[in-house]
Design a protein around this nucleic acid. Structure first.
Lengths: 230, 230
DNA sequence: CCTCGTCGGATTGCATGCAAAGTAGGGGTT
DNA sequence: AACCCCTACTTTGCATGCAATCCGACGAGG
């Protein structure tokens, strides 16, 4: 992992983490001076980072009125999963013939680690699952070696809730999700693209069900809160 | 078409046009002061524009070494068309039930206009085809009303050659391309998503053949030029 | 003759200052 | 009492200045 050299890139990464991690809620105002102070840089790199995040769709900028964390509707979220259900299985199939034994072992290690920290019990640590999951999927993207597909996927996924957390998974869905990772490793080991593609399709469908449900709950919650304040 | 209010957005649009239009060749160096002088602004909006174009993949930035227009290999170009051949037909099918009669008429007008300026003869104007083609496809994207799909497509297509020009079309391919537009209009009018999807699939396949051939020629040309100078 | 180190010019990265757009609040008028 | 306008404050947008980095060239040493 190469650490970004420039202040602007560090700012970009920091902001992305703040948004993806949920420290900045959707719709939250992003004042330039406030962020600059918080991150210990001047407004210039902050502006650059905000601009790039806007290009990625993570924040929304209105001229002369500043930036806010992007919001999204349930319909948009479902659209994202429509796309993922096409692109990620395709990408996974692409990765199969390119995976070397060392790559498979690495993915296997990640999948096993996820089983450990995700297993119900006193040692369960759902927060630890997030980086492992990202590492797993990012590794697959890299293996596929298909820049255009990777770019399209990145553009589609950026709405942040998608990657955010596993706290919303019920136990059965979580168990399925973890099993899928292991099964993808098995398909890679067997060199069977169709198998890998099928598992990834299930994986996305499972995630879709969880996320859409969570989004619906969150939306009704905020709607109620707005009614109360009004 | 709303004109951008801020200097940075105008700069962004201007640079995009310079690159997409081919005035700045792939690999060309993009000095900040040079561009600032050329566009009559200071370096700040230029930096912001370059940063965003980098996020889009149109330019490549190396820290402390400046920006260049992005380059791409034939393999990457083929990857882009792989994606388009999945995404655009899907998007077109999506657009069918949402197209209102007025929308269909608008697309029909664009298709007819393309036939006029694209027909062989003294009035042929291939340059005029470019904006019409963009308008046609952008209209379809808007009709589909699928933000995630649009974002993914935009991310995938950005390698500029894809949209650049029709100068490389041989006569038969050009005739096919124009006919496809009309046939898409017909499918929309008939309300037949499967038909529209099929035509768009052919349309992309046709474009792919032309573009890959052109890219191969261009690559060998530059290779030869490099040999000569070496 | 080739390699390595150093110096000068050019360019980027970032901070800061100033002007313009926007927002909120109070006072006056109808 | 409701509405509008005007003023003061906040925030963004852009230009500019300075320090740090990088590239090329020249010269010394092997």
């Amino acid at each position: 992992m190469t650490r970004p050299q420039t202040s602007a890139e560090r700012t970009l990464a920091a902001l992305r983490e703040l948004i993806m991690g949920g420290d900045l809620a959707p719709g939250a105002r992003l004042g330039e001076v406030e962020l600059a102070d918080r991150l210990g840089v001047s407004r210039t790199p902050v502006r650059e980072a905000l601009s790039r995040l806007a290009a990625e769709g993570l924040v929304e900028v209105v001229p002369n009125r500043g930036a806010r964390v992007a919001t999204w509707t349930v319909a948009e979220l479902e659209g994202v999963f429509d796309l993922r259900s096409v692109l990620e299985p395709q990408l996974t199939a692409h990765a199969v013939p390119r995976a070397r034994p060392a790559d498979v072992e690495e993915l296997d290690a990640l999948a096993r680690r996820m089983h450990e920290v995700g297993a119900p019990g006193p040692d369960q640590d759902l927060d630890a699952l997030v980086p492992l999951n990202r590492a797993f999927h990012d590794r697959l993207v890299a293996l596929a070696a298909h820049p255009a597909l990777a770019a399209a996927l990145a553009a589609a996924i950026h709405p942040p809730i998608v990657r955010r957390n596993f706290l919303t998974y019920d136990e059965a869905s979580l168990r399925r999700s973890l099993a899928h990772h292991s099964e993808i490793v098995a398909a890679l080991r067997a060199g069977d693209p169709a198998w890998a593609r099928a598992v990834m399709t299930s994986h996305i469908a499972n995630a879709r069900a969880v996320m859409v449900r969570a989004a619906r709950l969150q939306m009704t919650a905020t709607a109620i809160r707005q009614e109360e304040t009004a």
